[in-house]
Write a protein that binds this DNA or RNA. Structure first.
Lengths: 223, 223
DNA sequence: GGTTGTCTTCGTACGGTGTACGAACGACCG
DNA sequence: CGGTCGTTCGTACACCGTACGAAGACAACC
């Protein structure tokens, strides 16, 4: 298979998924492709634009909102798809929002989302508003999920227990107050609740999402 | 003034504010302090923990929720303060949530927020839920604001106009369809609305925030 | 006083990074 | 065959984080 921008980008994404974005270097990417480092610069002007290209590949994976269902269902599906993609591509969280020049897939998605809201009867102002809340929530949630080392409620419980233990250790070393004394509410939540019943990110995401969708529908129907 | 961990961290934050986090290097930081690079390692174990320390300084700037007002007012103020701080420290957005080991200021803030909600009558589950939505929104919003090069509505309008122009240029070069044809809804919003009346991030943040606070209050009073 | 030890500073060096430059090589066209 | 062009790559430079050990400052002891 010959080298191409497409293949360079896809391989870069594979490496980012496997080893994390911070360890992705032009040399490693070139190695992976069986090629000298400088060869890459014939397909990509520099590393920044490589990242831009990778990000747009991620955007392309996100489902466009459906046009044959009510707007809440469409937005709900789009949000779930975004969270899903961002979970598969944690390396991209934090890059997607902050990059300066959006790629084609990104534009396509944004246009489709705005279109979905406008066609559902949102005014331009409300559309912008809805778009802003939804995306802030979705990306913010992904940001929080980015670093957690577990995938399900059971894992969350294990981590909560472990962290509680670690904190107790640290406190003892520095002869500080215990977690329970110093941060009672945190203790209640982490050591009490989460360590007991766990924490389900997926369910939590949907609850917050529905809260926002409900609020938006109220504002839409009221306008 | 003698060197100290405190002073190292503060200077690092100053440099991050001035030149951006990605250009902050141990050598530059040492230069700024009039000291050799390796000297820093007597105050900080490595660069990662330097970043942790810087992040905790930012957390320390965020106002704790007040205890003498109703929970919505307290959370509202805390959210506004967070956005404010994150806007002064854009370099910190993306670092604050993703770092593994939270500092003291961070723990203190989290505890205070959880406490505010619990005392307001939220169940533990609802508290976690509320906390999750609010923070996802706040940090997600900050993430979106992170890169925008303007501060007020007028600036937003100027940027929207400029971007529209740039897109037209790009389209012409590659003989693509125009923005208006290819992405009509995006066009309506960017070239139509924003370029005309601008976009006020602060107002937008508050709208979304109130939407979420309303939703949370409904769930609280219903439980 | 001299000696010892601890704390702070720093020079040097190693292996990594992004990428500028120019040489090499093949395929193609005249 | 000669020439052009697209692609590849070796080398080099400036920068990065940081390991190591030497050098100095200064207080506490004999």
């Amino acid at each position: 298979m010959p080298l191409s921008k497409e293949r360079v980008l896809r391989t870069a994404v594979d490496l980012a998924v496997r080893d994390g974005i911070e360890s992705l270097s032009m040399r490693k990417l070139a190695d992976e492709l069986g090629v000298g480092a400088m060869t890459l610069y014939h397909y990509v002007p520099n590393k920044d634009e490589l990242l831009d290209g990778m990000v747009d590949l991620v955007f392309a994976e996100i489902e466009l909102p459906a046009t044959d269902v009510d707007w809440q269902t469409a937005m709900r599906r789009r949000a779930l798809s975004t969270r899903d993609v961002l979970n598969r591509h944690r390396w991209a969280v934090g890059l997607m929002e902050s990059r300066a020049t959006p790629g084609l897939a990104s534009l396509r998605l944004h246009d489709a989302v705005l279109g979905c809201l406008r066609e559902a009867g949102f005014s331009v102002e409300l559309t912008i508003q809805a778009y802003s809340v939804l995306d802030a929530y979705i990306y913010g949630f992904a940001l929080q999920e980015k670093t957690v080392p577990f995938d399900d409620a059971r894992g969350a419980a294990a981590v909560a227990e472990e962290q509680t233990r670690q904190f107790a250790e640290r406190a003892e070393e520095r002869q500080m107050a215990t977690l329970a004394e110093e941060f009672p509410y945190l203790f209640e939540v982490v050591a009490g609740h989460v360590a007991e019943v766990g924490y389900d990110f997926a369910a939590s995401f949907e609850h917050g999402l529905d809260l926002i969708l409900d609020g938006l529908e109220q504002r839409r129907s009221r306008s």
